[in-house]
Design a protein around this nucleic acid. Structure first.
Lengths: 218, 218
DNA sequence: ATTAAATTTTAGACAAATCTAAAAATATAT
DNA sequence: ATATATTTTTAGATTTGTCTAAAATTTAAT
């Protein structure tokens, strides 16, 4: 039994630890959660008592095994719900984040396992993010940044930026998960790319955009 | 923007007012919500300031038009989610209440309208309760208690008792929504009934059970 | 190696929702 | 109609998660 707030802290710690350093700072957490460092300190004490995090004052924080388990479970729920919203309810991939932020806190293991079955045991969510199974295991990574990938023929497998502005821009380009991307020109000056999508339309994309697109490594 | 707690108070007031008197008492609310009368009084003051209820101290409480609208919207969400759980995720009708109690507070009109469409605009939930449309209108009532219905051939349309024990008992009898019930004997002494279900198996049911079964009035 | 800057924690306060115990108002009973 | 019982409200306290302002600690800079 953990509150929504506690769950959000665990998720935030997990995500900050995932991309980068082991120890997460109070300020980084406050930033991520839209709260103040003083509030974070209070909550860290609470989570520490519950043995969900390793915390020594002034020394940053990391998840314990049980804290990590909870964080991954929340991510699992978030991603399954996002896929449900897109696949079954016909939401756009740019519209589902906020709703999934609420749904991820619904408490019922049976619910999430049945939802997973209903969705046919998917491995990736609508943004290409991997969905952990009910033991907390992630499917193998399978992608690299389009901006860094060697070669010229790829399948788009995910996005880094999950914001609506970026996703809507991709929609406008006609570019989505599963599409074939062929790199036709690389412009060394600004690292922009000319690509063709599914052997059909071509498009110019900036380095910034290419840095936010994940493609299969084959 | 109302808290889960506020929504639960509005729902409880709506339900208590529905079966019975107009004005709902503080004690009745405390009973229904599993809380203390003193807490109820505090919340009533708050809801009154928000103009969601009509409240004069010591005089009981009733919903305003906007309070009623919110209460019906929550009931709509609860029933649509229950149907989703039973129809799509394969839960039993005795298992869905608690989960729907959580899901009913997810805030997104678009979500609930898309869910309604996905379920093909259903009019009744897994217990036969009517589902209000997005304007808050209920489908017409269509049922009476089996214990009181005149005639001998009926279609089961709903239940009064929603508890798992009762629902599981009906499951054991092989009796569910849509089934045909033919009353073969009425025992005047204890008002128990001998019925046949779908022209097949017959069963004896007590007056107490018959009082909790709703059937079509034709 | 001190000082300055940044980060983090503590102290004290607040709003939401609850509680217990006591007081006030209403309803009931003889 | 007055006393008794019931219901409801008030008063004051508690818990959760937040805040601001000030103090403590760590990091960075000269």
């Amino acid at each position: 039994m953990n509150s929504f707030t506690e769950e959000n802290y665990l998720k935030a710690i997990y995500k900050l630890a995932a991309n980068g350093q082991e120890e997460v700072s109070t300020n980084a957490l406050a930033e991520k959660l839209g709260t103040k460092p003083a509030s974070v300190t209070d909550m860290l004490k609470k989570l520490s008592v519950k043995k969900l995090i390793n915390y020594k004052r002034y020394q940053g924080v990391s998840l314990t095994a049980s804290g990590k388990k909870i964080a991954i479970q929340i991510i699992r729920k978030h991603r399954l719900w996002e896929l449900f919203l897109v696949k079954k309810l016909d939401f756009g991939w740019d519209e589902v984040h906020e709703i999934a932020e609420q749904l991820e806190h619904i408490e019922s293991d049976e619910l999430i396992n049945k939802l997973e079955k209903f969705l046919d045991y998917p491995r990736y969510d609508p943004h290409g993010d991997p969905i952990p199974d009910n033991k907390g295991r992630f499917p193998a990574e399978r992608s690299s940044l389009l901006s860094e990938a060697k070669g010229e023929l790829f399948i788009m497998t995910g996005v880094v930026d999950h914001g609506p502005a970026f996703l809507q821009y991709l929609d406008k380009l006609g570019l989505g998960l599963g599409d074939e991307i062929k790199v036709k020109e690389r412009n060394p000056y600004d690292e922009s790319l000319k690509i063709s999508i599914n052997k059909k339309q071509s498009a110019f994309i900036s380095h910034q955009v290419a840095q936010n697109i994940l493609v299969s490594i084959e």
